[in-house]
Design a protein around this nucleic acid. Structure first.
Lengths: 126, 126
DNA sequence: GTTATAGATCGATGTCCGTCGATCTCCAGC
DNA sequence: GCTGGAGATCGACGGACATCGATCTATAAC
């Protein structure tokens, strides 16, 4: 695309001044950015991403014993990843006898998903 | 929700057999999971997430000198984060004279965004 | 009580990541 | 040529992370 560079700094300017005015700024507040970044970080591991993928495909709960053989890591590693997802607020678990069942928390990805899908701001005249 | 647990392991089973059949599996292939996880990892830092947010709000290119004062880190750190985003395939840059301009690569978030927005699979009878 | 099993937790280890200051490269102006 | 600035790169440092084996807890069956 060959859009004009409204955001170009001035090529000529007095020495000592910043190269340009701060005309851009993040729309997302710092707290919101940290919240969404923590969600993204939780999804930033292939095993955790696939765990979420499996759990989302099942409205019911999934037994941990089903999840472990899906990956080439030890049980303690899967348990660790599930804990990370739980602490990120993406999943929760329930115990029934010997077994533990995990499920995704509805709308836990809502804010982050809306931001990712947001794309370019059509109201921005740039 | 109180959906039945079709995925429960058998409570009675012969010793030595696995607790349950592998009836669940990730829909996303490993390569796709690693691809999307690398995108998520790139977004897993508040500064990088806000960088993407700023760049997406502007269809044109944004001068690096505008991005640096937005954050409380040094220039080299911002440059490092921009490099991470570039290597993740989310942004690209163009040099004009002394200044460098960054812009988001269109549809770079498409696959990941579609997965995040996908939610529960309605075709799954669980 | 004893034994066996599911799963969480702990401790150690090696690797990766975020940040910094310093340096390097490239370009513009003189 | 020389000088100065924008931004990329490098090396170092500290903290975080992924993985493992071992252990612990809780339940179920005997």
């Amino acid at each position: 695309m060959s859009v004009d560079l409204q955001l170009s700094p001035k090529q000529k300017r007095p020495a000592g001044e910043p190269c340009c005015e701060p005309v851009v700024y993040p729309d997302v507040e710092r707290a919101q950015a940290e919240r969404m970044a923590s969600v993204a970080k939780a999804l930033g591991d292939p095993i955790r991403l696939q765990l979420i993928d499996v759990l989302r495909k099942h409205a019911g709960r999934v037994c941990v014993c089903e999840l472990i053989p899906l990956f080439d890591v030890r049980q303690s590693t899967v348990s660790h990843h599930l804990k990370v997802l739980r602490e990120a607020g993406l999943v929760d678990s329930e115990r029934r006898g010997l077994w533990a069942y995990y499920y995704v928390i509805p709308d836990a990805l809502a804010e982050f998903g809306a931001w990712v899908a947001g794309g370019a701001d059509p109201s921005c005249g740039c």
